[in-house]
Design a protein around this nucleic acid. Structure first.
Lengths: 128, 128
DNA sequence: CCTTGACCTTCCAGTCACTGGAACCTTTAT
DNA sequence: ATAAAGGTTCCAGTGACTGGAAGGTCAAGG
């Protein structure tokens, strides 16, 4: 399989796949003409990576997950610990965004949004 | 006021303040020795920027907000529109993170987290 | 007067995870 | 023979800083 086919199959852009090779997440073989040749195991890894990235795991977390994925003698507790850490990160981010949303909503609700210059959003941002 | 004092006052790192000058968000004066000299208006702008950034506005959004802040003949509707767009962005992000959280929580709950290698998290990430 | 330390300056490189584009080679179809 | 569609590498840019090096300035103490 060439990179275009694997890209279509995994939903990852070819550029991204090349990048994943560059940072050694995958090691596809090469054809005589220099083209990358992707085996099924590469396809599986890329699918795995795509899913993990979609769940917000960083590249380095993906690298660890991939190592666990390939280590058939892993302990599921190691995987779970990694996932739980990441879940905590996500929950932190949600909390932060919810705080922003709350403050911003208040400011927006207080603003008339008409032709006049008075604006509680601006005064809210500059208050001392 | 020198950069250290303004940093302490606004809570922004000196590095960040220099960066804001570099991208022309502020234009502090210079002393004979080359040191930046911050007037009250600079301090106000930086406070404003700090708050806007804390609410998640991008630098370019901050630039627009700052222009509105300085334009006393603005219409509050312009400010409100900008803030509403940003609020929509925040809400999108929250939704995305909540989706991640839901999926990840399910996987985590399904995982025994013991010494055995079987792991629904890994199989969930690689399922076809 | 000299030194020490805290402060300031500029400039360059690195972060993260790609993404765009240039310049070029290979394959396939007409 | 040629053109289109695919592949290759390499370099630069994104956003918003952040770290560090190399050096200038200033206030206080001996």
């Amino acid at each position: 399989m060439n990179i275009g086919q694997i890209a279509a199959q995994t939903g990852l852009p070819a550029k991204t796949i090349r990048y994943y090779e560059e940072i050694a997440l995958i090691q596809p073989a090469r054809d005589a003409n220099g083209y990358r040749v992707f085996a099924d195991t590469d396809a599986h890894k890329l699918t795995f990576l795509g899913r993990a990235r979609a769940l917000g795991f960083s590249i380095e977390e993906c690298r660890k997950l991939l190592a666990l994925y390939e280590d058939t003698s892993r302990a599921s507790s190691d995987v779970k610990a990694l996932a739980q850490e990441h879940l905590a990160d996500i929950e932190d981010k949600i909390r932060q965004l919810e705080e922003m949303r709350a403050t911003l909503s208040e400011l927006i609700n207080a603003c008339a949004g008409d032709n006049r210059p008075d604006c509680p959003i601006l005064t809210g941002l500059s208050r001392t």
